[in-house]
Design a protein around this nucleic acid. Structure first.
Length: 895
RNA sequence: GGGCGAAUAGCUCAGCUGGUUCAGAGCGCCUGCCUUACACGCAGGAUGUCGGGGGUUCGAAUCCCUCUUCGCCCACCA
């Protein structure tokens, strides 16, 4: 690794050897050292390749991990799991396509084996992809839905909850996806505001003496009506309670019941009851002993329970047909537009059908209570904070969790039923059964599988060897942070917390960092189906992992979305790409100028090189570097990763590269003495900056850092100590003096540009009215000023600029007067205008300031400090204006 | 319908506890430079009634109210 750096920054040639080296050395970080710091790895999508969301997620996590490791903690990733939701569905569909199968070709156990194999295969690839982003995960196994550990844990948990009576089975209205042919949890049925209609239907009384008008948004369900409900206090219907109506189209006689769940103000105040297809109807019907008639097949066609002419019709077809027939029969009173929330399947977006069905549930209230406490007592920290409110609200209103699914992959429910109907025992078991434990007869396992999140919620401990409580579990549980997208706050995060509290008596992590979504310029979520995605590996290929990481981290305020333009990668990733290149070239420049002796600095910036040997620029860059250490450290600690990244960026580019490196060139080249000190300082500050930046840009920083002098071959920045602030570096005088120098150089450069002075053309400048205390300092910096402002000569004088030659001029904030004689380049009229504008600007500011200070209220009420500062400002501006007016007079400008 | 955010340069966004980094950054734009680390660069520059209106305050991009517009979460009013 000691060959000279290639002149061109080539991401691949930087990343490939390091990646290999990290892997060979298994040196991503310490193991078993210090206090552990654990980040839960969210589900990597094993279906094909990472998407930009993963790129973002992995970058954030890796920054946190690397930061902690450098601070001496044993930071690890706990492998997450691929869940059987959208991701595994994709896996399965790919597998089916690959093997030319249809979903019904395969028996469950055999099929699970194949899924398992495929996942293991692609999982390895995904690991490689994850690492190519620079992610320092040092685990080498995949942990997926069908791993044996997880299967064991699932049974353990299921049986435990079952034995406590927290899992039960029953017939309830659940959300049903007619396309996936399975039950869904409430969370999986995504509500979407939809413009629909509400129909008012006429139901005649059985004796023809009148009618009830009911309102419905799903008229087709009337085929399954078994009653009509009204509010008991509703005067309009009081007399009808207990009577019966003749259900149109079907002819069934159904009762009118009174129930306070009915809102008399909504619709017509009368609700048709379809207990098999609506949760509220179901509740009401249960209270009144009404039958539930399921009029739909699993794929949402009208079933045999309905009159023959409707059978087999799709639900939406049936809706039209029912409405048409009612209208024809004069039974349609009216129809209104109605906006309401309709559930959609989160996997396939099909409209969910509420369906009466026999399913398994988890009783959530007892599990939710401790999880809510953990938030309220401050154990859990959400970043950003407001997500905690969502978390709490969800837990407060939590409903029982439907965990059974009728899909053809997943963990089977570990319950066995006795074949003998006389026995009828139902047994939950950790091991497979073939006989009924009660009567010894044949037993068969429940056909349904568990909601994927039932297993996913166990990952924080199941992946650490649970139920074995020693080893990794003892060391790494409870963990610390989870970084994920807010979409799965309820699906996954909340449930992991509940499961952790229930089975390990501790929350699995205390910090929950919820990052934003990656979107395109139209603010649409990036997705494969829309084709607006950015493949992070493509970005890595073009610009490098460091550029990708810097772009997303630097442009990411906590909890906000990241907007990237898939059509213009060059622009989207420009900040990271440019910075990577800049850093590379800074490294090349510094490393190629270390030929002379480099004296080490002890500690961060201390004094093997004596303080009196340091030049102003040295003291300044050391102070700036120390400030960057403080800023970056604080920002990382607060998880304000963008602030941290940008703080280091500013230090490296705006301070180190733009000013310090330029300032020390003569010393480095040996034109002036002090090269060894300059080398010591530049190595030291660059080293510190590389370490600060390493969490964000691991590859370039490692590559450059390893080549700094005095590094053993196997040294790695990954475990280099995190820079600490050093009070000895603080040097306000140097910051002020160097700042003045920057102002002077800036003013001269402005004049050069203003008058189009060609770079080759040498000019002179005069600084006058310098205070006696700064004049010595300025004279010392004269060569630096001349160099950076491209002057052929600089006169520094205490005198007033009286009699100064004609030239362009400016005044600095401390009242120093700058004059640049330009000979025939000068345009007196232009200069007069320029000065006039500047003076006008100052007068305006002076006017405002006088008004402000003339305000008795301000002077008496504002803190003395503030008032004093404002006075100083005013004095300085007046002084500047006076100087400029003098210059104007000298030029003979018209007043 | 309930809860919560956001609106700042052409674009994407910082601006944390009201007052010296208060109007900023990156990209884009304009002018001049291939200055031997870097043209993915250097130097200089332009651009904003900080969404509208009101209030609190000596002082508001920042705090309060209100309106407008977007967004997120939740919700069995059929």
């Amino acid at each position: 690794m000691t060959e000279p750096l290639p002149p061109q920054y080539e991401p691949k040639s930087v990343e490939a050897p390091l990646y290999q080296w990290w892997r060979d050395h298994r040196r991503f970080g310490p193991r078993g050292r210090g206090e552990p710091y654990v980040i839960m790895m969210p589900p990597p999508n094993v279906t094909a390749q990472l998407h930009m969301g993963h790129g973002l997620n992995l970058s954030i996590q890796d920054v946190m991990i690397r930061f902690e490791r450098m601070r001496g903690r044993d930071a690890v990733w706990v492998p997450g799991t691929d869940h059987a939701g959208i991701a595994t569905q994709n896996v399965v569909e790919k597998l089916l396509a690959k093997e030319g199968l249809t979903r019904f070709d395969v028996g469950r156990p055999a099929f699970e084996e194949r899924v398992r194999g495929y996942v293991a295969e692609t999982g390895t690839t995904i690991l490689e992809q994850i690492r190519s982003l620079g992610a320092s995960c040092d685990w080498d196994r995949t942990y997926y839905t069908f791993s044996d550990d997880l299967s064991r844990a699932v049974r353990e948990v299921f049986v435990s909850l079952f034995d406590q009576g927290l899992i039960y089975r029953g017939k309830y209205i659940i959300n049903w996806c007619p396309r996936c042919l399975t039950a869904l949890s409430n969370e999986e049925a995504e509500k979407e505001e939809t413009d629909g209609k509400i129909w008012r239907l006429r139901y005649p009384l059985d004796d023809g003496s009148g009618e009830v008008v009911v309102a419905t948004t799903r008229p087709e369900t009337m085929l399954g009506d078994t009653g009509v409900a009204v509010h008991p206090d509703d005067d309009r219907y009081r007399d009808l309670i207990g009577r019966a109506v003749r259900l149109p189209l079907v002819g069934r006689l159904i009762p009118i019941v009174a129930d306070s769940a009915v809102d008399p103000a909504f619709g017509t105040g009368a609700v048709k009851l379809t207990p098999a297809h609506d949760p509220l109807d179901f509740e009401i019907a249960k209270r009144h002993g009404l039958e539930a008639i399921d009029v739909m097949t699993p794929d949402a066609r009208i079933s045999d329970a309905a009159p023959e002419r409707f059978r087999g019709l799709d639900r939406f077809e049936a809706r039209k047909r029912v409405v048409a027939e009612l209208e024809a029969g004069g039974l349609l009173v009216g129809v209104d537009a109605h906006r309401h929330a309709v559930g959609h399947c989160y996997r396939c977006d099909t409209v969910v059908e509420p369906r009466y069905s026999d399913q398994w549930f988890v009783k959530m209230a007892p599990l939710a209570a401790p999880a809510l406490d953990a938030y309220r007592n401050g154990t859990l920290t959400f970043v950003p904070e407001r997500r905690g409110v969502e978390y709490a609200q969800w837990l407060e209103g939590i409903r029982d969790w439907c965990i059974s699914r009728q899909i053809w992959w997943g963990h089977r429910i570990p319950v066995w039923y006795c074949d003998d109907s006389a026995c009828g025992a139902m047994t939950a078991s950790r091991t497979d059964l073939d006989r009924c434990p009660a009567c010894g007869g044949a037993a068969r396992q429940d056909e349904d599988v568990l909601d994927t999140w039932f297993s996913s919620q166990l990952v924080p401990f199941s992946s650490l060897g649970w139920p074995d409580a020693t080893g990794d579990l003892a060391r790494y549980y409870p963990g610390h942070a989870l970084v994920t997208a807010p979409e799965i706050l309820f699906f996954w995060v909340a449930r992991m917390i509940m499961a952790g509290l229930e089975f390990r008596a501790a929350v699995p992590f205390t910090t929950i960092y919820l990052h934003g979504t990656v979107r395109d310029t139209q603010h649409r979520k990036m997705s494969k189906s829309l084709g607006n995605g950015i493949d992070p590996l493509d970005v890595v290929d073009r610009y490098g992992a460091d550029a990708l990481r810097f772009t997303v981290i630097g442009g990411l305020a906590v909890g906000t979305d990241v907007i990237l333009d898939p059509a213009d990668l060059d622009t989207s990733f420009a900040s990271g790409r440019n910075f990577a290149n800049k850093l590379w070239n800074m490294g090349r420049f510094i490393l190629s100028n270390l030929d002379g002796p480099v004296r080490p600095l002890a500690g961060n910036f201390a004094n093997v090189v004596g303080r009196d040997e340091l030049a102003l620029g040295d003291r300044w860059i050391i102070a700036r570097c120390d400030a960057a250490v403080r800023e970056a450290t604080e920002a990382f600690e607060k998880l304000r990763l963008n602030d941290a990244a940008n703080a280091v960026y500013r230090f490296l580019w705006n301070d180190l590269a733009d000013w310090y490196l330029e300032a020390i060139k003569p010393r480095l080249y040996g034109d002036v003495p002090g090269g060894d000190v300059a080398r010591a300082v530049v190595v030291q500050t660059f080293d510190v900056a590389l370490r600060l930046l390493h969490p964000v840009m691991p590859f370039i920083t490692e590559t450059l850092w390893k080549r700094l002098p005095g590094r053993p071959d196997d040294a790695t920045i990954m475990v280099a100590p995190w820079p600490r602030p050093d009070h000895r570096a603080t040097d306000q005088a140097a910051v002020d003096e160097f700042g003045a120098l920057q102002d002077i150089i800036g003013a001269i450069r402005s004049i050069r540009a203003e008058y189009n002075v060609q770079p080759g053309q040498s000019i002179r400048a005069t600084l006058s009215r310098c205070g006696p205390n700064v004049i010595a300092a300025l004279r010392q910096q004269q060569p630096t000023i001349e160099r950076l402002a491209k002057l052929s000569g600089l006169i520094v004088t205490e005198a007033d600029p009286a009699g100064a030659p004609t030239g362009a001029s400016a005044v600095l904030t401390d009242g120093t007067s700058l004059t640049v004689p330009l000979g025939d380049l000068i345009d007196v009229a232009k200069e007069c205008t320029r000065l006039g504008q500047e003076i006008a600007r100052l007068h305006a500011a002076i006017g405002n300031q006088e008004k402000k200070l003339g305000n008795e209220q301000f002077v008496s009420r504002a803190p003395a400090e503030v008032v004093e500062k404002e006075r100083e400002k005013l004095a300085s501006w007046r002084d500047q204006a006076t100087v400029l007016e003098g210059k104007r007079a000298l030029l003979g400008c018209p007043p």
